[in-house]
Nucleic acid binder design. Structure first.
Lengths: 239, 239
DNA sequence: CGCATTCTTGACCATCTTCAATTAAAGTGG
DNA sequence: CCACTTTAATTGAAGATGGTCAAGAATGCG
């Protein structure tokens, strides 16, 4: 057991799968009762404070996790410090990159979060033994690929205003999955993180937020809590 | 057999797998002799002119293909016409989006190309029956995901000069895989396509190319043929 | 050879960034 | 609980990067 691995495992608590939110998620939903029990024996729940790193860019991946609660951001940083968030993951998503020793990005808790951590070796073995699980993870990978490409369109071709509106729309639809006319939600990201997701600066994000507020598209109850009276309007602005 | 499907199949020629470039590629490399023969019976080789669409955004996906020769670009377009290239694929890559009826992007030949086309139903069945194949496609999906996220960093956080240098570097390393000091290659993309890949305009791409030329980083033999005397220099500029 | 398309170049302009100052919010310790 | 510090967010002014518009050069094709 290597350092990063044991570090994680010593700070968690035993796992109870039966009442788990991710019981029917990407990983656990594809396992037999027997496998679930085995995975459970080697897994631990762990609380992660907002901002804490789950896996570092360039680090060896000795474990995978399921998100139980909270939001996780996937980041890439350049040697000179420029940073780009390349994905957001929500419960009960799987976090990890199978088939590769070294992580090409870092995963960080954006909000306080809870994750269920399990050793890489064990899951890799189960993937090899369980076509159902392989298929399930393949499916999540393809969905993430679709999302990444959708975001490439946002990064490359949308204006600052459209970018901010797109992000608010993305988060709103994740927070309130029911297709309501209006939405109210907490932003899981700071202005700086939003900027890193949109390829903008903090100042531009802030200015676009106040522009949307002045136009009546959003209400900023406080910097983290947003109300969208008319989701269609927001979607129209995202283009 | 639906329209798009038959359209494709009527314009191809029978397949000979034994001497095929993709014989050990993502799809065919994972098949048994028996399966390969069956897939071969239902596949056809097809020539695709540069610019021709292989699959349209929003269209029903009734077939998949392997790239035998040439470069394929994956595009997303917005209702107002803004366009973003979200991926490049080279031989012997697999083109298609398993598990989903409708394509969220279009695939277009960037250069004259040759593809090997096979019906979706058949490959879907083989995927379900062949863990090896599932694994192989899963692996390609994860590699494309890595590439997409790497490109998100380029789109979001690099300057125009760095973007152009990054693209030249990407294409150079694909054209001349041996890690040489210098490289010479044909661009598979027009200036307009480069702009759509980098989230820039044609003019900015052109200006950055001449800047790189004046600095001696590249030699533009003609607008499509580029020589890079010092790849390290180019990589340094891509940041 | 002539027309059409692609690429390059220039001048001007808009958007977004940078730098700087101010306000608001969130911790901290007495 | 409240001053005090620290951090996050907003706002303003000036500047730079990249976009737009327009003209000209190069290339390719019938």
């Amino acid at each position: 057991m290597d350092v990063a691995h044991s570090e994680v495992f010593h700070t968690g608590t035993p796992v109870a799968c039966s009442s788990c939110q991710a019981r029917h998620g990407v990983v656990c939903g594809a396992l037999s009762d027997h496998q679930l029990k085995e995975l459970g024996r080697h897994s631990l729940r762990r609380k992660v404070d907002a901002g804490a790193e789950i896996i570092a860019q360039g680090a060896e991946t000795s474990f995978y996790s399921n998100i139980m609660r909270g939001v996780v951001k996937l980041c890439k940083v350049m040697p000179d410090g420029r940073q780009q968030i390349v994905g957001l993951q929500f419960a009960p998503d799987f976090v990890g990159r199978p088939f590769v020793r070294e992580s090409t990005l870092s995963a960080e808790a954006a909000t306080d979060a809870e994750i269920c951590v399990f050793p890489r070796n064990l899951l890799d073995r189960m993937i090899a033994e369980t076509p159902e699980l392989q298929r399930s993870l393949h499916d999540q990978a393809l969905k993430e690929l679709d999302a990444a490409r959708e975001w490439m369109l946002t990064l490359g071709r949308r204006t600052a205003e459209e970018k901010v509106a797109s992000l608010l729309h993305l988060i709103a639809t994740h927070a309130e999955p029911q297709t309501a006319i209006s939405a109210a939600f907490d932003l899981p990201l700071s202005r700086a993180e939003i900027a890193d997701f949109l390829g903008l600066t903090i100042e531009t994000v802030s200015r676009q937020m106040t522009r949307l507020r002045k136009r009546g598209v959003i209400v900023i109850e406080n910097s983290r809590h947003i109300v969208v009276p008319d989701m269609d309007e927001l979607e129209k602005i995202s283009a």
